[in-house]
């Protein structure tokens, strides 16, 4: 699964650590999701979508 997390984060000038703190997860988690090594659970995907005020489908796209 691909995602636009890095772009959305860059638009807000947030570091991975900034985003991790906002989401309440580790920086490693943000890095793993951004690089496509790990697909988040639905609750975490909703938290990400809520934070960026977008729908899940607008952030996470099928390969």
């Amino acid at each position: 699964m691909n995602n636009r997390l890095k772009v959305l984060r860059a638009e807000r000038s947030w570091s991975q650590q900034d985003l991790a703190e906002r989401l309440g997860v580790s920086r490693q988690s943000v890095n793993a999701i951004e690089t496509g090594k790990y697909d988040p659970s639905l609750p975490l995907a909703f938290r990400i979508a809520d934070l960026f005020e977008e729908s899940i489908e607008a952030i996470f796209v099928r390969d």
Binding site: G24, V25, S26, Q28, S29
Partner: peptide, 8 residues
């Protein structure tokens, strides 16, 4: 552990 990736 509340971080699902670290738990994995």
């Amino acid at each position: 552990l509340d971080d699902e990736y670290l738990r994995l």
